[in-house]
C-alpha cells in the first residue's frame, strides 16, 4: 500500500517535471541542430551532431531589422538598463520600507496604500502618461528614460517587500540606536542593512526578472540604440531572409533568458528563505 502510493506520488512528480522541462529540452536540442536535421528529424530527438553555429550566429551575426550584428549589442543594452534599474529600485525601496515602518509620519499609511495600488496598475495604463512625462523632461528614447521608467514602476513592489520585512524588526531596536545617538541614515546603514540580506535577494531576483524580461516598456520607450534584448529577439525572429532559421531563433531565445536563469541559480535559495522570513520566530 505504502509502496503503491509512493510510486503514484513519484510518478506524478516526474510527469510534472517532464511537462515543465519539455519545452526547455526542445529549445536546447533544436538550437544545437542544423537546419537539415530539424527539417528531417523529430522535434524531441537529441541532435546527432551538435553544432554551435546557430548560437554564434544568434550572438554575433543574425539580423534583427536592418542591423546584422546579432544579439550582442542588445544584450549589453539590457545589462546597462537592468543593473542600475534593479539596484536603484531596490535601494530606494529599502529606504521607503524603512521610513514607512520605523519613521512613521502623518499620512504614511495613506502613502503606503497608494503605493500598494501602484502594484496593481497594468503596464498599458501608464504607457501614455509616462511617454508624455519622459518627453516633458527630455528623456524620451534614451537609456536614462528607460531606467527611470523601470525604477518608478518597480518601486511599488520593492517598497512593499521591504516594508513587510522591516515590520518584523522590533521598534525598540531602532529606539535603542536613536538613544545611542544614531540618525536616520546611520540606523539604516549600520543596523538594518546588515540584517536585510534575504529580502535584498528577493527584491533583486524579482526586479531582475521583471526588468530583464520586460518587452512593452522596451519597445515603447527605448530609442534605436537603447533597445533591450527582448525587443531585439522579437525583431530577430520576425526578420526572415528566405528560410526560417529555427535553430538560430531558439539559440537567441535561450541567450535572452540565460541571465534570469543564472540569477535564480545563484540566489534562488535566498529567495525562498526571504519569502518565508519572519514566518517562523527565531
Amino acid at each position: 500500500m505504502n509502496i503503491i502510493s509512493r510510486v503514484f506520488l513519484y510518478g506524478i512528480l516526474i510527469l510534472a517535471a517532464l511537462y515543465a522541462l519539455a519545452p526547455m529540452w526542445v529549445m536546447l536540442a533544436t538550437s544545437l541542430k542544423t537546419l537539415d536535421e530539424i527539417r528531417d528529424g523529430s522535434l524531441i530527438a537529441a541532435p546527432h551532431a551538435p553544432t554551435f553555429a546557430p548560437w554564434l550566429k544568434a550572438w554575433g551575426t543574425a539580423c534583427s531589422g536592418v542591423r546584422c550584428d546579432g544579439l550582442k549589442p542588445f544584450f549589453l543594452n539590457s545589462l546597462l538598463m537592468t543593473v542600475p534599474s534593479v539596484l536603484i529600485s531596490t535601494l530606494v525601496g529599502a529606504l521607503n520600507g524603512y521610513a514607512l515602518t520605523h519613521w512613521r509620519f502623518r499620512g504614511s499609511d495613506a502613502l503606503f496604500t497608494l503605493l500598494l495600488v501602484g502594484c496593481f496598475i497594468p503596464f498599458q495604463v501608464v504607457l501614455l502618461p509616462m511617454a508624455r512625462t519622459l518627453g516633458a523632461i527630455g528623456l524620451s528614447g534614451s537609456m536614462f528614460g528607460l531606467i527611470l521608467v523601470h525604477v518608478v514602476y518597480g518601486l511599488a513592489f520593492t517598497t512593499l517587500f521591504f516594508r513587510n520585512y522591516y515590520l518584523g524588526v522590533p521598534g525598540e531596536l531602532i529606539k535603542a540606536a536613536r538613544v545611542d545617538g544614531a540618525g536616520f541614515f546611520v540606523i539604516f546603514w549600520r543596523i538594518l542593512l546588515p540584517i536585510s540580506g534575504p529580502i535584498f535577494m528577493v527584491c533583486i531576483i524579482w526586479q531582475f526578472t521583471q526588468i530583464w524580461n520586460d518587452f512593452l516598456f522596451g519597445v515603447v520607450f527605448a530609442g534605436a540604440d537603447s533597445q533591450p534584448i527582448t525587443v531585439a529577439l522579437n525583431n530577430l525572429v520576425r526578420t526572415s531572409t528566405g528560410v526560417k532559421e529555427y535553430n538560430v531563433d531558439m539559440a537567441a531565445a535561450i541567450i535572452a533568458g540565460l541571465p534570469t536563469l543564472l540569477v535564480y541559480i545563484v540566489a534562488g535559495k535566498y529567495f525562498v528563505r526571504g519569502l518565508t522570513a519572519g514566518a517562523v520566530k527565531g
Binding site: P170, E172, L173, K175, A176, V179, I191, P194, I195
Partner: peptide, 15 residues
C-alpha cells in the same frame, strides 16, 4: 543625553 535599557534588550543583531 540619556542611556536606556530596553525591556526587550534591543541588542543590535548584526554586531
Amino acid at each position: 543625553d540619556i542611556a536606556m535599557v530596553f525591556q526587550s534588550y534591543a541588542l543590535y543583531p548584526s554586531m
